[in-house]
């Protein structure tokens, strides 16, 4: 009754919840989410558990999901092993950071420029180009692996950073997201008045459009960074000095059963970074994705 009376004062969120919702249904949803959430999270918990297990607990029967006497020894061993490798570990870390930073920066700038032009300047040919981008979302890069290798070797880019960084500049999904977001959140009226005042398109892009699409470029940064951070062994790179942190860490851990714990520690180190980044930026990403739908 009170609900009905206060209908107009109720926050929308709460009101939405009260129509067409039954307690039984709510409980059903909670149970389903709890079961599947548990299944999703078990392997991750298991990985973290393994990384904290002291050696003797690996040979307990039946095995434990979570160690009784957790220890950080595996992580210490991991860092000791890093110190022993013949290419200093700082070099692998440098490679990964260099690839991630340069690749991500180029990606965000190039795709934002292109997205701005396509969504806000009515030049001939823009719909055709955008259609091409949409089609390119329909297949993945394994298809072009062979010809890319031929191209890279004809450029002389094999075994250089360029082979990894430059293709990362033009991820079509980045352009797609940015264009969809700019279309809805950059208002034409503002751009038009800036144009009348005589601002150049380049200036409008940096001073007006980019500040308005902050969630979108944060999202692009995350997606590009996530991919580049996970670059591991790669068919273009064979010098040890140019390999990535991810590659090095996976090499450390493949050898020997006694290293199960160290291997788990390495996995945890690798997964913690993207997860943390996502936690910090989640609301921006969701906001960007909300405009990402395919309209036509």
């Amino acid at each position: 009754m009170t609900l009905f009376k206060n209908k107009n004062k109720m926050p929308k969120e709460q009101f939405q919840r009260s129509i067409n919702r039954t307690v039984k249904g709510d409980i059903g949803i909670y149970i389903i989410l709890a079961i599947f959430g548990f299944l999703m999270v078990i392997p991750l918990v298991y990985a973290i558990g393994q990384s904290l297990k002291p050696l003797e607990e690996f040979w307990v029967f039946p095995p434990r999901l979570i160690p009784v006497n957790p220890t950080l020894k595996n992580f210490r061993d991991l860092f000791r092993l890093m110190g022993d490798s013949w290419v200093p570990f700082s070099r692998y870390i440098f490679n990964t950071v260099l690839i991630s930073v340069v690749g991500t920066a180029g990606n965000v700038i190039l795709s934002s420029y292109a997205a701005y032009a396509i969504s806000k300047i009515p030049f001939p040919g823009r719909t055709g180009l955008f259609k091409l981008i949409v089609y390119s979302l329909m297949f993945n890069s394994t298809v072009v692996g062979i010809t890319m290798f031929i191209l890279m070797s004809s450029f002389g880019w094999i075994d250089t950073y360029l082979a990894i960084i430059v293709p990362a500049f033009c991820t079509t999904f980045g352009l797609y997201l940015m264009k969809q977001f700019m279309e809805t959140s950059v208002t034409d009226a503002v751009l038009e008045s800036a144009r009348i005042e005589g601002a150049s398109e380049n200036k409008i892009f940096w001073k007006i459009a980019m500040p308005m699409v902050k969630p979108a470029w944060i999202t692009l940064i995350i997606f590009a960074f996530k991919d580049l951070w996970n670059v591991g062994s790669n068919m273009y790179i064979y010098s040890e000095q140019l390999k990535t942190f991810n590659y090095a860490i996976s090499q450390l851990v493949t050898s020997g059963i006694s290293r199960t714990g160290v291997s788990a520690a390495a996995t945890v180190v690798m997964m913690i970074v993207p997860i943390l980044v996502f936690v910090i930026t989640q609301s921006n990403i969701i906001q960007t994705m909300s405009t990402s739908g395919m309209k036509d």
């Binding site: 392997p43 298991y46 591991g232 788990a264 996995t267 690798m270 993207p274």
Partner: peptide
């Protein structure tokens, strides 16, 4: 989380 955690599927 599982989709962004790199090679964690090896677990």
């Amino acid at each position: 989380a599982p989709s962004i955690s790199g090679s964690v599927y090896l677990i």
